[in-house]
Simulated scan of single mutants.
Amino acid sequence: MAGAPSSGPVFDDGKAPDAMRTIGEVASALNIKPHVLRYWEQQFPMLRPLKRSGGRRLYRPDDVALVATIDRLVNREGYTLKGAKRALSQGAVAETETVSAAEAGSSDAREAQSVTVVPQLRAIRDRLAAALNA
């Protein structure tokens, strides 16, 4: 998720946008409990904040953006942790976010989004139909 710091939350603490954040700062900005962030670190291998002496975690901007994406998938879009992990590892989430963030509101964006989303929805429908028929 290189270059994704702008997709994360906006911090109003006087630090530079690319500054590292503590687990408490990230938890507060995203309204997520710190123990949930620690659990997500175990469940999502791509989420690896720096750990200083004493186990103090420092989240880079890319880590914060990844946490925001995981939060969106799990808490707003209804993914399971396993499903969110699969979506992130396959890159399907990044494609949809890029299209919607770069061109939101235009008819070209809607067309580009449908080109990306429709095949994914069809694949999901086919998997569900196969599972029901099995």
Rank of each mutant, 00 (worst) to 15 (best):
D108I: 07
E25F: 01
G91R: 09
G54R: 12
R60S: 11
K82V: 05
R52P: 12
V93S: 08
N75P: 03
L30T: 01
A109E: 13
D18I: 01
I124W: 09
G83H: 06
E25W: 01
D13A: 06
L128R: 14
E95S: 08
D71S: 14
E111C: 06
V117M: 12
S89Q: 15
L37P: 07
P9C: 03
L47Q: 14
D13R: 01
P49C: 10
L50A: 15
M20Y: 13
L88H: 04
K15N: 07
S6T: 00
E103F: 13
S28Y: 06
P49K: 11
P9G: 04
K33H: 15
R60E: 04
N75V: 02
E111P: 04
G3Y: 00
A130K: 13
L128T: 07
T98G: 03
I23R: 01
L73V: 08
S107F: 05
G55K: 13
A16Q: 14
K82R: 15
F44A: 10
T22R: 06
E97L: 12
V93M: 07
S6E: 02
A92L: 12
E41M: 13
L73R: 01
S6L: 02
E41W: 10
A2F: 03
A2W: 02
D62M: 12
N31V: 10
R60P: 00
V67Q: 00
L88T: 02
P17Q: 10
G3N: 01
V10Y: 01
L47P: 09
P49Q: 12
N31L: 09
A65F: 00
R48Q: 15
D12T: 05
A129T: 08
Q90I: 03
M46S: 14
L132I: 11
V10C: 08
T96F: 03
N31T: 13
L88Q: 02
T80Y: 09
A131T: 10
M20K: 14
I32M: 13
R125M: 08
A123P: 12
A130V: 06
Q90H: 11
R72M: 12
G14W: 02
P61C: 08
D18R: 05
V64C: 07
A104Y: 09
V67R: 01
D62R: 15
A4I: 00
S100F: 08
V74T: 12
S7T: 05
D13H: 03
P119C: 03
E97V: 12
A109W: 06
R52E: 13
T116A: 15
R127G: 05
S28L: 06
A109K: 10
D126H: 12
V74E: 08
E111I: 08
E41K: 11
A84Y: 03
G8N: 00
A109V: 04
E103I: 11
L121P: 05
A4K: 00
R110Q: 13
T116R: 10
R38D: 05
T80E: 13
S114A: 13
V64E: 00
V67Y: 01
L81P: 02
G8A: 00
V117G: 05
R56Q: 14
L66Q: 02
G91V: 05
M46F: 08
P61M: 05
V117P: 05
A102W: 06
S53K: 15
L30K: 01
K82D: 14
Q90A: 06
I70P: 11
G24R: 07
R52S: 14
T116P: 07
K15I: 01
